[in-house]
Nucleic acid binder design. Structure first.
Length: 639
RNA sequence: GGCGAGGUAGCUCAGUCGGUUAGAGCAUACGGCUCAUAUCCGUAGUGUCGGGGGUUCAAUUCCCUCCCUCGCUACCA
């Protein structure tokens, strides 16, 4: 059995969680779920980083003690992961007692090893900034922000002999091309290491300046520098130096970080491990930023997208799918509501959702909802099965390489292939011709492929996947799934099992497209409320009028459509193509008063122009027209 | 300034270890089907593959140079 250990950074709790945090955690979760389905034994670690200067300041600003403050924010993160279906194995906090003990253990080992020394460090300390400023930051010898001349303070501190391990690290990266990926970050780290001599790292802060941290085991006048403390969480969470988890999972440790913390993870951390006599982690996986209007998201710019808000508006499934599908791993990507809606409508609603729904619907029409027994397979079936095997193989390979976007694109080749397969096999014709044997095979091929797709989607959209499988009459059990076997196994779907009558997991959403042509419109924020409510002005945009049907004929090229001429008080009657033929005969309709949407954009329906829409209401029994309780003048407005 | 990434169809991007007509999705137009959520399938496209130069029988792909965008990093007096 394989093993897999994935970590997110421990998020710094000086501010609330944002989209960047959500993205990292969601890919970690997707990877973890993927490896679970591949049959690996997995450990997924996340948590919060709660020490350091900034935390103390943020707490003070909130009128709280550091402990109260971090408890609150840490809780926010945990709640968010629960809302995003992020299922971690452990949530670590750097204020945990076990973590502190582990940090001290490692510090002591490095100290005993002779790689920590005590030295004087001098610099320009600004009391306003509460930190040392570099020569370059000074303007006319003053701190530009506080306009005061910084004090020159000589301070004694402990330093980690990081420079000693520079050559070893360069060598290690060269020998292990996968150590840092994607490769652009590997190159960046190498050039950083090769260009200049690595400085030693200051790893202490005197308690006179900062008390909120972990004490150095060899000098209780100092606390540990926050990065040194934080990185060790990846080990302390496994119970290092004790415990089976360390031995089991550390050799397969995969760190996942955003590119802004590349340096601590790619340089500080491996050299720390080396100095402590611990093997380095297996891989560092680096992702890019989500940009909002081409600017990196930041709280101060006020363009932070609340992850929860997007999730509430469009659903968790679409949100997770979008994040994984849209961003090439390692590069930056733009986040926009339009793009999210585009993916939701095109990929999820039109392609996948509709495919699934039409499959279930046909199973009901032709087989009373029971999965049929397949007959002999023909060339078309062999072809789609091969397409499926290839697509799923690429999907799995891509996920192993963190290429989620490529993987999902491959999976959709199968989705599109199946839509085409339906078109070509035309089950409705087989049914009409009473070719039930062939029809059974075709429907079984569809249903079995839907099962395979649903299972593969579990890492990305766990909720939708479980629901899809449920609608196929399967109770999802991660233990029983093995994705690698899925490539060669066919026919796990049992015949005669009842499936759902329909599925609407991904309803289309209609969002008024933001104008790309000109400047932002006055009411550009109309869709921003996210509540699904419309303003009265929006309602007023609809021109609803009562009119009398003067003439009706059947649509020559469609079974369900009627061509209706309605007098809505204008010089000319309106022609409206309506989907009423199954419920009303032309004779029934003529002379009735109906409600018409008069300013609907004209559209051709099977070659016939339709200049409006007749309002009706549909329930299980059929379709009923809407009208006024009394006769009114044609053209009267509905309000 | 150095290093890295990128500049490919209207948009978002894939791709080419040099080789017959450069791809996908979205958007657009037209056609087809009716099982389906105004969904699906098909057809049609357009691209001096950032500019210029070089190597080659052949370059979008290799080399040089320049321009633009982004990131990291250093400050060259």
């Amino acid at each position: 059995m394989g093993k897999f250990y994935i970590t997110t950074p421990i998020y710094y709790v000086n501010a609330k969680p944002h989209l960047g945090h959500a993205y990292t955690s969601i890919i970690a979760d997707a990877l973890n779920r993927f490896h679970l389905l591949m049959g690996d034994e997995c450990f997924f670690l996340t948590g919060t980083d709660e020490h350091g200067d900034k935390i103390v300041k943020s707490a003070e600003a909130n009128g709280q003690t550091p402990k109260e403050f971090v408890d609150e924010i840490s809780g926010l993160f945990r709640n968010l992961w629960s809302d995003l279906d992020v299922k971690y194995s452990k949530f670590i906090r750097t204020t945990d007692a076990k973590h502190k003990a582990c940090v001290q253990e490692i510090l002591q080992r490095v100290y005993d090893n002779g790689d920590i020394y005590f030295d004087e460090y001098g610099g320009h300390y600004c009391v306003g900034c509460e930190r040392f400023l570099t020569e370059k930051e000074l303007v006319n010898g003053k701190c530009p922000e506080h306009d005061i001349e910084p004090e020159y303070i000589a301070e004694k501190n402990y330093f980690f002999r990081m420079s000693k391990y520079q050559d070893w690290l360069i060598d290690h990266i060269n020998r292990n091309p996968d150590f840092i990926r994607p490769s652009q970050y590997r190159k960046e780290v190498l050039s950083l290491l090769e260009s200049g001599a690595l400085d030693d790292l200051c790893i202490s802060r005197p308690k006179s300046r900062l008390t909120w941290g972990i004490e150095l085991p060899f000098d209780d006048d100092f606390v540990c520098y926050v990065w040194f403390d934080a990185l060790i969480n990846y080990l302390s969470a496994l119970g290092y130096p004790n415990g089976g988890n360390y031995e089991k999972f550390w050799p397969v440790a995969n760190h996942l970080v955003a590119k802004d913390i590349l340096k601590p993870h790619a340089i500080f951390w491996p050299t720390m491990l080396k100095a402590a006599g611990i093997d380095v982690y297996q891989r560092l996986n680096v992702h890019g930023y989500w940009l909002v209007k081409d600017t990196k998201m930041s709280k101060s710019l006020g363009n932070v997208i609340e992850p929860l808000k997007m999730m509430e508006t469009y659903g968790l499934n679409a949100f997770r799918y979008f994040l994984l599908r849209e961003m090439g791993f390692g590069s930056d990507s733009s986040f926009s509501e339009d793009a999210l809606v585009g993916r939701l409508n095109a990929d999820l609603a039109n392609d996948l959702g509709n495919l699934f729904n039409r499959t279930l619907s046909m199973t009901h029409k032709y087989f009373g909802g029971k999965i049929p027994c397949p007959g002999d397979e023909g060339a078309e079936d062999a072809e789609i099965k091969k397409l499926g095997r290839d697509a799923l193989t690429r999907y799995q390979e891509s996920f192993l390489e963190m290429k989620f976007s490529v993987g999902l694109e491959s999976l959709w080749e199968l989705v599109r292939g199946l839509n085409k397969y339906i078109d070509e096999t035309a089950p409705w014709t087989l049914y009409k011709n009473k070719d039930m044997s062939r029809l059974s095979t075709v429907m079984y091929v569809m249903l079995e492929n839907m099962r395979k797709i649903a299972v593969h989607l579990w890492p990305v959209m766990p909720d939708a996947s479980v629901k899809m499988l449920g609608q196929l009459g399967i109770v999802f059990d991660a233990e029983k799934v093995n994705l690698s076997k899925e490539l060669d196994v066919w026919g796990l779907l049992e015949s005669n099992v009842q499936v759902a009558e329909f599925s609407n997991l991904f309803p289309r959403v209609e969002v008024e497209k933001a104008s790309h042509a000109g400047p932002a419109k006055k009411n550009g924020n109309a869709k921003d409320n996210g509540s699904g409510l419309v303003d009265f002005e929006d309602f007023q945009k609809l021109d609803l009028r009562v009119g009398t049907v003067v003439k009706v004929e059947k649509h020559p090229d469609a079974d369900k459509l009627l061509i209706v001429q309605v007098d809505i008080g204008e010089d000319e009657v309106r022609q409206v193509v309506a989907g009423l033929a199954e419920f009303y005969s032309p004779e029934d309709l003529k002379g009735r008063q109906v409600v018409v949407v008069a300013n609907l954009k004209p559209r051709k329906l099977r070659k016939q122009l339709s200049q409006g829409m007749i309002l009706a209401v549909k329930d299980a029994k059929g379709m009923k027209l809407l009208t006024s309780t009394e006769q009114v003048v044609n053209g009267s407005k509905v309000s």
